[in-house]
Design a protein around this nucleic acid. Structure first.
Lengths: 145, 145
DNA sequence: TGTTTTGGGTCAGTTATATTGACATATCTA
DNA sequence: TAGATATGTCAATATAACTGACCCAAAACA
């Protein structure tokens, strides 16, 4: 039998630790910017997902965030009030709401992303394309995508 | 100039999204177990780091968690009360406290880890060793390790 | 058509985890 | 011995989540 060193518990424990650091650092970077708008990381995650999946419905967003609708509603109310996002009635199913960034929201996203990008960009630029591809594939498997 | 496709913004945005999912899923898996002991993810992270770095000091743990000592203290109090961890006076510097899992804590860690391990194990076992190595290296670069 | 289900919104109360700021104590170091 | 450091603690507050109960409008179904 092969000695699957990379499946040893210590390696797995390291990954669990490092995934925590990676998430925390990646989402900490833009906190100062968010604070300028009185937003927190909850708003950030919503803005990010809305930018990546423009026109997604409230339930789409809920299932990506995996929080309750009461929790999400606080965030969406803030974002709507601030004119960062807008909700349109669903074209096919008018019970649904489709969520979009408006101009202000797009600018805010860019400002946040510019800051957040640095960390990932620096990691990728010092890696070869094969590493990046394999990083992506393992990451996908972790999230069962 | 090379066309660094893997440095394109969309790829970076995907990574930012996927790092969020990876963290959330990885740390969601053992929540039921934690609940049995009236612990949350804050306790989990502390337990994990203590297991990985046995005998670390309070300030070591603080700098890994990047929370305030007031926040950490609530968690440590709970864990001490529950007899999951113990604190010993530092051998060299007796102002310091070195943190250890006791027997109960080790069992709890194993129970948590067994659950949490599955996700990572499954991702790694369907990847080759080169992928795992490269995943690790990119992850390390993201956290500047 | 009438009934049920679904998508979304909201009120109210609570919990978990973090924060800021102030202060106390013991111990180390210059 | 004076100051710096490591840790602990009190109190108040912020952020982000939760549960549970209800509501309306629109879609789906029988």
């Amino acid at each position: 039998m092969r000695d699957l060193l990379y499946l040893k518990d210590d390696q797995i424990k390291d990954f669990i630790e490092q995934i925590f650091y990676a998430y925390r650092e990646t989402y900490s970077d833009p906190k100062k910017i968010l604070k300028k708008y009185s937003f927190g990381t909850a708003h950030h995650r919503a803005i990010h997902l809305i930018e990546r999946h423009e026109g997604l419905t409230v339930s789409d967003l809920l299932s990506r965030l995996k929080i309750t609708k009461q929790s999400l509603n606080r965030v969406l109310r803030d974002l709507i009030e601030n004119k960062t996002i807008l909700l349109k009635k669903g074209e096919i199913d008018s019970r649904q709401r489709q969520i979009y960034l408006n101009e202000k929201g797009k600018k805010l996203f860019e400002e946040i992303f510019l800051e957040q990008k640095k960390r990932i960009y620096n990691a990728l630029k010092s890696s070869d394309s094969d590493s990046v591809l394999k990083f992506k594939n393992v990451l996908k498997k972790i999230i069962n995508e």
